[in-house]
Design a protein around this nucleic acid. Structure first.
Ligand SMILES: [Mn+2]
Ligand SMILES: [Mn+2]
Ligand SMILES: [Mn+2]
Ligand SMILES: [Mn+2]
Lengths: 225, 225
DNA sequence: ATATATTTTTAGATTAGTCTAAAATTTTGT
DNA sequence: ACAAAATTTTAGACTAATCTAAAAATATAT
C-alpha cells in the first residue's frame, strides 16, 4: 500500500537481523544464525544477503556477517513496531493470552498501511510496551529506552518488578502463567539452592514460589523506584 | 497457521470467482473476466485455473468458464468473511471512512487464524453486514439472506431505506458522502428527469437532493417494514 | 604452523506465479 | 454456413525464493 519495493521475505530478514544484532550488542550476525531463525538453509541466506546488500539495506562483507544500514534499520523498526502493536491489540482488545499471539503477529506485522498503524496505535492508547514487556518503537523508529536486568543478576532480598521475558516460547510463558508470574508483579529472591541453583522467590510480598535457574535467567526485572 | 495448503494467490482467485459468479447469478465466470479482476493476463489465469481444478476447488471445462466446487466455495466464503469483518473493525473501531478500507481489508483477509477470526467477530458484536451493506458469512459459511433492490427499480414516492452499494470505488463512496447519503438513511424518489434520467430524492424526509441515473442504479435499498 | 573442522559462498535445479507470442477454440455477423 | 473476430489455451521464458552438493574461506586445535 505504501511501499511496493520490499517483499514480505525481505522484511522478515531485516527484522531478524535487527533482533539478533540487538541480542549480540551490535555485533555482526552470521549466515548460520540467520538460517536458523529464518528456517532456511545457509545457501538461501547467502543469496538473500547479496540481494539486501545490493539494495543497501545491510552492510555485508563476504564471510564477515552483516549489520543493518540506516535504511535497513528503519524498515526493521517499522515491522517490529507493527508486530508489537498488534500483539497489544490481540491481548488487550481480543483477550488472547501472551502465549498465543506471536504467530498471529508474525502475519499482521506485514500489513502495509501507514494510516492503519497510526490509527491502531491511537486506538490502543499509544502503548510503549508489548505484552511481553518489549519496547514499541514510535512512528519515527525511536525505541523507548529500557534497562532491564535478569532476575539471576539481582542480589538476595532486593525487591524488583517483573518487566519482561527474554524467551517468548509458549511453553515458557504458560509456565509463568501457572506460577502466577505476570508483568508488573513484585519479586524478591529469598534464597538460591546450593543443590540446583533454583530460586525461592517471594511473589507480591505474599506467596513463596520456586523456579528453576533457567526461569530466573529469562525473567527481566527492574529495581523499584 | 490453520492451513498450509492454500496460497494467498489461490485465495484471491477463489474469492473473485465467488463474487463474479454471484454477480452473474450463478453463471460461469470467464477467463478474461478473471484476468481483469486479478490484474493479470488471460494466459496466467488459464494456468491458475488448471491448478485450482486439479485441487478440486473449481469446476473447469476448457473454454467453458468456471464455477466453484463446494470446497472452493468454503474457502472463498472464509476469505470474504474475514474481509468484511476487518472492514467493520476499520470503520467501527478505528474510525476509517468506508471509502478508505477496501485495500487494507484486501491484505487482512489473508491472515490465517481461526481463533483470531472468532475473537474479532465477537469483539465487533457479531455483525451481519459490513460498512458497505454487504452480508458477512458466519463461521460455517452461511450468508445472511438479503433482498436489496436498486433505487432505480423503485416506484416514485415509495419510501425506502438505503442498505448498500453495488459499486465500492472510493470516488463513488465519497460522492455519496458529499450528498450525505449513508447506510440506513431514508430515500423517496420524487421525480425522474425526462432530460437526463437524473433523480430528485427526498432524503430522510427533509432535504431534496439530486443524483445522476448512474448513482441511482448503484444504490441498494429495501422497502420499509 | 599446519592439518582438520566449521562456516560460508557458489553452481545448478526447482517451484509458484507471472509474462508474450502463437495456436486452438468458440462466437459473431452476414 | 462460413469467414472473421474474439476468447482461451499452450509453449516457452522470466523472477523470487528456495534447495542440494561442491568449492572456497575462516576458525580451531594440537
Ligand atoms: Mn512476538
Ligand atoms: Mn512480543
Ligand atoms: Mn472491500
Ligand atoms: Mn465491503
Amino acid at each position: 500500500m505504501d511501499n511496493q519495493l520490499i517483499s514480505f521475505t525481505e522484511e522478515n530478514y531485516l527484522k531478524i537481523i535487527y533482533l539478533l544484532t540487538e541480542r549480540h550488542n551490535g555485533n555482526e550476525v552470521s549466515t548460520n544464525q540467520l538460517a536458523e531463525h529464518t528456517q532456511t538453509k545457509a545457501a538461501s541466506v547467502s543469496d538473500m544477503l547479496r540481494k539486501l546488500a545490493e539494495k543497501n539495506y545491510i552492510n555485508y562483507r563476504k564471510y564477515q556477517g552483516v549489520t543493518l544500514t540506516a535504511a535497513g534499520e528503519q524498515i526493521a523498526l517499522g515491522v517490529i513496531r507493527k508486530h508489537r502493536l498488534w500483539e497489544v491489540f490481540l491481548v488487550e482488545k481480543l483477550g488472547f493470552g501472551w502465549d498465543e499471539i506471536h504467530d498471529i503477529a508474525e502475519q499482521l506485522e506485514h500489513i502495509d498501511s501507514k494510516e492503519l498503524t497510526k490509527r491502531l496505535d491511537n486506538f490502543l492508547g499509544n502503548p510503549q510496551f508489548d505484552p511481553h514487556g518489549d519496547p514499541i518503537p514510535d512512528a519515527k523508529g525511536k525505541m523507548p529506552s529500557v534497562s532491564y536486568l535478569k532476575l539471576s543478576e539481582i542480589p538476595l532480598n532486593q525487591s524488583v518488578v517483573m518487566m519482561g521475558v527474554s524467551v517468548h516460547s509458549p511453553a515458557f510463558l504458560q509456565h509463568l502463567d501457572k506460577q502466577q508470574i505476570t508483568l508488573g508483579c513484585d519479586l524478591k529472591v529469598l534464597e538460591i539452592s546450593d543443590f540446583d541453583k533454583s530460586y525461592s522467590i517471594l511473589l507480591d510480598g505474599k506467596n513463596t514460589i520456586f523456579v528453576s535457574n533457567e526461569v530466573a535467567k529469562n525473567l527481566l526485572v527492574s529495581i523499584e523506584e
